[in-house]
Write a protein that binds this DNA or RNA. Structure first.
Length: 480
RNA sequence: GGCGGGUUGGCGGAGAGGUUACGCAGCGGAUUGCAAAUCCGUGAAGACCGGUUCGAUUCCGGUACCCGCCUCCA
C-alpha cells in the first residue's frame, strides 16, 4: 500500500499517515462562511485538499474515505448583509432574507468550486442544522468545568485547559502581553472566548438554557466534526490564518468535551495566496473572486493548475503572466491526452503526491509523460489531478480547422461565427504578400494579433490561428 | 513585542548530501519576405556568515530581507 506522508502542523514534522480506521479514513476542512462569493484565496485550500481527498480515495478506496466540509451559515456578516438588503427595501423578514442569502451563496460556491474541478465532499453540513449539538457540547463543557455562563454569554475558560496554545505555539500569557484581545467585564480571563452569545429580537436566535441566542464562531466546527466524524479522526485542514484562534479553540472545545479522544491526529495548513506579490485586499484593489476570473475567460482548469503549481506549504503568488503561461501548457497536455483511449495512473505520480502533496513535482512527471507521448499515462495523470474529466477535451482547449482552398483557419468551436471575418483578413494579408507590400502585410498581421488572430504561412496554406490568444470580437470587427 | 512561513538561474518552480530538475523566456541552427509553429543544439542558480562532512544549494546555528497570524480573512 502506498505510504502517505504529510506535514503535521501539530508536530512540525512530516509523518506517515496511519489511519485510525483504514476502512473509514476521515478528513475535515473548514468551509466558507456563506455571506459572499468565494475569492481566489478561498479556493486554494479547496483545491489543495481536494487533491488529498483524491489521493486517499485512490489509496484506501472511494467508499473508505469520509470528507466533511462545512458551511457556516450563522454569522454576523451574514446578518449584516441581510440587514443591508432589508434597509435597501427588500421584501420579506430578516430571517427569510438571511436564508435567501445563504442559499444563494452556497449555490455560487458549488458552481465555482465545481468549475475548479473540486469533488463534492461526502458531507457538507450547515451550522444551523447542528445548533442542538452545539448546545449539548456547550452544556458538556460547563458540566466539566471548562466553561461558564455570564450575562447571557457562555465563555470557554482557557485557563482550565493547560494545553491551550499548543497548536499555534503560543502561551496564554504571551498573548495577553500582546494585549490585542477584546476585554469584556464578564470574562474571567481576557483570552476566554465566546461559545454562545445572546441575540436581540431582530437577529437570528435559538432557545437555549442561557436564553435566546446564537453560537460563537468556533463551536460549529467542533460540533459538526464530532457528529459526522466522531471525537477522533484523521486529518483536519484549513488555511494557516485559521490556526489561531479558530483551530486552537476547536481543539480546546473538543478535547475538553472528550478528554479520552485525540480529536484530529494530523493538522494541515496551507500558506496564504498573494496577488502580484501583494496580499489580496479590497483596499489594494487586487481583490477578486473565482467567478471574476472565470468570467474573464480564465478556464477553471487553468486556475486549478496554477494553484497546484506551488507547494501548499509555501506562500503562492497569483500573477496574470503565470495564468497565461500555464494555460498554454495545459492546453498542449489536454490536446495530447484527449487522443488516449484509456487512462492509466502511474506509481511515480502517486508516490510524488503521497509525499506531502507535492503537486508541483507532479507537474514535472506529467510533463515527462507528455514529452514521451505516453498518452494513456498523461490522461490518467490529468484526470487524477482533477484537470481533465474522462478524457474529454474542454472546449477552451479544443480547436477546429477549416480549409478554404489555400487558406486555413484554426479556432475554438465557439468562435465559428467569426470565420468569415477572419477569412477576409487572411485574404487581405495574402494579397499584400503577393504584391510584396510587406509593410502593409506586417501592419495587418500585428493588428490581427491584437484582435487575437495569429497569421502565418505553412508549406500548403496561409493560416489564421486564434486558439493561443483571446479573440477580441470588437477589434476583429474593426479590421474588416 | 510574541508566533509561524519564505529567500534556488531573466521569470516561475521541484527533488536529492556527491550524478541534467522541469517549464517559460533568451541565444545558435534548420525553416520563413519577415515572422509564427515545430525540430535540433545551448548558456544560466541556490540571500549572507559560520559549523558538521572527504564533499552542502540540500543537515545545524546565526544575520539580513520579504510575507502572514496574534483584529470571527482560507
Amino acid at each position: 500500500m502506498t505510504e502517505i506522508r504529510l506535514t503535521n502542523s501539530k508536530t512540525h514534522r512530516k509523518e506517515v499517515l496511519q489511519p485510525l480506521d483504514p476502512a473509514n479514513v476521515r478528513m475535515y476542512l473548514c468551509g466558507p462562511t456563506v455571506y459572499d462569493r468565494a475569492h481566489l484565496g478561498n479556493a486554494r485550500p479547496v483545491v489543495v485538499f481536494d487533491v488529498l481527498y483524491r489521493l486517499l480515495r485512490h489509496v484506501y478506496g472511494p467508499e473508505h474515505v469520509t470528507y466533511v466540509r462545512n458551511f457556516t451559515d450563522v454569522d454576523d456578516k451574514i446578518n449584516a448583509a441581510a440587514l443591508a438588503r432589508k434597509e435597501a427595501g427588500a421584501a420579506g423578514t430578516l430571517e427569510a432574507l438571511i436564508r435567501e442569502r445563504t442559499e444563494e451563496t452556497i449555490g455560487w460556491y458549488h458552481a465555482d468550486m465545481d468549475a475548479l474541478g473540486a469533488l463534492r465532499p461526502t458531507h457538507e453540513p450547515r451550522a444551523t442544522e447542528y445548533i442542538g449539538q452545539m448546545v449539548a457540547m456547550i452544556e458538556g463543557l460547563i458540566a466539566r468545568g471548562h466553561a461558564y455562563a455570564a450575562e447571557g454569554h457562555v465563555l470557554f475558560d482557557v485557563r482550565s485547559y493547560p494545553d491551550y496554545g499548543a497548536l499555534s505555539g503560543r502561551s496564554v500569557d504571551d498573548m495577553i502581553a500582546g494585549a490585542r484581545v477584546e476585554v469584556a467585564p464578564y470574562k474571567r480571563d481576557p483570552m476566554d472566548f465566546v461559545l454562545w452569545k445572546p441575540s436581540s429580537d431582530d437577529l437570528p436566535g435559538w432557545e437555549s438554557p442561557w436564553g435566546r441566542g446564537r453560537p460563537g464562531w468556533h463551536i460549529e466546527c467542533s460540533a459538526m466534526s464530532d457528529a459526522l466524524l466522531g471525537p477522533s479522526f484523521d486529518i483536519h485542514a484549513g488555511g494557516i490564518d485559521l490556526q489561531f484562534p479558530h483551530h486552537e479553540n476547536e481543539i480546546a472545545q473538543s478535547m475538553c468535551v472528550h478528554p479520552e479522544a485525540e480529536f484530529a491526529k494530523v493538522w494541515m495548513h496551507n500558506e496564504m495566496l498573494q496577488v502580484e506579490g501583494k496580499k489580496m485586499s479590497k483596499s489594494l484593489g487586487n481583490f477578486f473572486t473565482v467567478r471574476d476570473l472565470l468570467d474573464k475567460g480564465v478556464p477553471g482548469e487553468v486556475i486549478r493548475f496554477v494553484l497546484l503549481g506551488t507547494h501548499y506549504s509555501k506562500p503562492m503568488d497569483w500573477t496574470a503572466e503565470k495564468a497565461e503561461e500555464d494555460e498554454a501548457q495545459l492546453r498542449r497536455w489536454l490536446r495530447a491526452a484527449s487522443n488516449a483511449k484509456r487512462s492509466a495512473i502511474t506509481d511515480d505520480l502517486i508516490a510524488t503526491i503521497a509525499n506531502d502533496l507535492n503537486t508541483a513535482g507532479a507537474r514535472e512527471i506529467v510533463n515527462q509523460q507528455f514529452q514521451a507521448l505516453e498518452l494513456e499515462n498523461l490522461r490518467g495523470s490529468l484526470e487524477f489531478l482533477g484537470l481533465m474529466r474522462e478524457g474529454i477535451l474542454p472546449e477552451w482547449a479544443d480547436s477546429i480547422r477549416e480549409v478554404y482552398e489555400l487558406n486555413a483557419i484554426v479556432c475554438q468551436p465557439r468562435h465559428r461565427e467569426y470565420l468569415p471575418a477572419i477569412l477576409k483578413i487572411l485574404e487581405r494579408w495574402k494579397e499584400h504578400r503577393l504584391r510584396k507590400e510587406f509593410r502593409l502585410a506586417d501592419e495587418l498581421k500585428a493588428a490581427a494579433l491584437e484582435a487575437g488572430v495569429e497569421l502565418r504561412v505553412t508549406p500548403q496554406y496561409a493560416e489564421a490561428d486564434t486558439t493561443s490568444h483571446r479573440l477580441n470580437p470588437a477589434k476583429l470587427e474593426a479590421l474588416k
